[in-house]
C-alpha cells in the first residue's frame, strides 16, 4: 500500500501538514476533503493546523508580488520568432519574369537587325600590321 492510499490518521495528517502546510488547497487532491473532516473532528489535529497556519504566515511575509520590470516583457518579445516572409512577393516575381522576357525579345530582335559579319577578315590582319605600314600611307 502506498502512502497515498493510506487512510487518514493523526500521524499521516501531521506528516502531510509538515509537507504542505495548513492550506488544504496545497494538499494532494485526493486527501483534501478527508483532511478537512479529520481536522474538524480531532482537536489535536485542529491545533496542529492552527500552528501550521502561523508558520505559513511567516513564509508569506516573504511573498514577493513586485511586478516584473516594465521593459522585460518587451525585451523578451523582441527575440520571439518572426513569420518568414518570402524573399520576393508574387508581384515582384511577375515583374522580374516580365523583365527577363523583355530582355530576351530585345536581345533576339537586335541580333536579327544587326549587319551580317563581313566575310573577309582583312581588318583582323590589319590589326596586327607593324606601325610602319601605316606611316608609309601618311
Amino acid at each position: 500500500m502506498t502512502k497515498k492510499e493510506e487512510s487518514m490518521d493523526r500521524e499521516r495528517f501531521a506528516n502531510l501538514l509538515d509537507a504542505y502546510g495548513a492550506d488544504f488547497r496545497r494538499w494532494p487532491a485526493q486527501m483534501r476533503a478527508e483532511a478537512a473532516v479529520f481536522a474538524a473532528q480531532d482537536a489535536e489535529a485542529a491545533a496542529l493546523v492552527a500552528e501550521a497556519h502561523r508558520f505559513d504566515a511567516v513564509l508569506d511575509s516573504a511573498r514577493d508580488d513586485n511586478p516584473v520590470s516594465h521593459d522585460l516583457a518587451a525585451r523578451i518579445l523582441a527575440g520571439a520568432p518572426r513569420a518568414q516572409r518570402p524573399a520576393f512577393d508574387r508581384r515582384a516575381l511577375l515583374a522580374l519574369a516580365a523583365c527577363a522576357v523583355f530582355g530576351v525579345v530585345i536581345g533576339y530582335g537586335g541580333g536579327m537587325l544587326a549587319p551580317a559579319p563581313a566575310e573577309d577578315d582583312s581588318y583582323f590582319s590589319m590589326a596586327f600590321e607593324a606601325p610602319s605600314a601605316f606611316e608609309d600611307e601618311g
Binding site: 502506498t2 502512502k3 497515498k4 506528516n15 502531510l16 509538515d18 509537507a19 504542505y20 502546510g21 494532494p28 508558520f55 511567516v58 513564509l59
Partner: peptide, 16 residues
C-alpha cells in the same frame, strides 16, 4: 510525490 513530500517537510522544518 513521496520524495517531494520529504523535501517539503525537511525544508519547512528547517525554516521553522
Amino acid at each position: 510525490v513521496e520524495a517531494l513530500e520529504s523535501l517539503l517537510a525537511r525544508g519547512r522544518r528547517a525554516l521553522k
